[in-house]
Design a protein around this nucleic acid. Sequence first.
DNA 1: AACTGGCCGTGACGTCTGTCATGACGGGCC
DNA 2: GGCCCGTCATGACAGACGTCACGGCCAGTT
Lengths: 203, 203
Amino acid sequence: MNRIRVLLADDQHLVRGALAALLSLEPDIEVVAEVGRGDEVVPAALRTRPEVAVLDVEMPGLDGLAAAAALTRELPGCRVLIVTTFGRAGYLRRAMEAGSYGFLVKDAPAERLADAVRRVAAGLRVVDPELAAATLAAGASPLTARERDVLVAARDGSSAAEIAQRLFLSEGTVRNYLSSAISKTGTRNRMEAVRVAEENGWL
Amino acid sequence: MNRIRVLLADDQHLVRGALAALLSLEPDIEVVAEVGRGDEVVPAALRTRPEVAVLDVEMPGLDGLAAAAALTRELPGCRVLIVTTFGRAGYLRRAMEAGSYGFLVKDAPAERLADAVRRVAAGLRVVDPELAAATLAAGASPLTARERDVLVAARDGSSAAEIAQRLFLSEGTVRNYLSSAISKTGTRNRMEAVRVAEENGWL
DNA sequence: AACTGGCCGTGACGTCTGTCATGACGGGCC
DNA sequence: GGCCCGTCATGACAGACGTCACGGCCAGTT
């Protein structure tokens, strides 16, 4: 019986190695590649031809969701399992839109990882049911593209004037977008709006 | 030869299990306890008598640094190795003040973990030299206790009035503390001040 | 005893923020 | 063709924010 070939992507070297050790304990699983950046996923996959790619969301270069989209486009035979620290509703949504087969939160029991890999390899979907419910409840992002841009630019504490300069907008326009983002997130200032939007994976 | 007894604490179950798998690959290391909360560290250690405790910083109940302090007080024979996602200067400082023997960042190479455990077990100190330099450069927190409190309260986007109410202060006093925290962090508003203080581990 | 530094407060000042009304332009939709 | 919606802008306003000067209180130095 052939072992399941797995590619592993996580920016934290220690965690990546540990996950590899965990998966390698399983007799029917083989880790054929390990990468630490999102933009290394596709090249490594083309080289090693894994059946399953286990991707973290937070990675330098390219995030795991974008890497998932690129991978399913370039190598449709390889199925994606997203593994992430944050059970954010928007992440799951984007992961599914990117053609992923599974979505696992990092505080799931350790035994579940190998299980998830097997199911994904078999073409089954793996999703934490609780998280799926939260995603449906949260719905899609209510923000427009520009409102999102402005919130992203506001994340580091920039003033409206600085954001305006960076996005080539007038200061008043920036304030307008911030205002509508604040009302859509049901918050009372930009700081809360950024926090809520981040927690929902809207940024 | 006796194997090194290790206690493992990390709130992310999957990561914890993976680290356990990684350490268990070493013939001279034995994981005798796994916990997911900071306040479970001491009880588990008293039960299982490990020689080394590998603690994550971010944990519910009690953070890893506080757990380290409690552990070295209750069970001085057990040495602490802090393992964390964030290489923040203030973390290292607090870890050392709590009596830890080692400090490892999670994107260190996987091989280094077992090595660090062995060194710590032998009574040697293990610190990323680059991080140590950054800590010395950054120095101790310039914030007073109250400035810190106010910044913590401001983290979620609360207004000055709300912070004042929560901390039983006048609104003007809150603005004064925020102002001095802003000037000490070299920033230009509370949002940047919170960000900088967080990055340096001052909160 | 004088000094320093943290804590807490007040009042005043100018600037930044958040909101609202209003308008122009373009693209999609029935 | 109208209609809605997203984009971009302006002007005005109240309220929040950040700064400064100033005071009183207490604990610990020197």
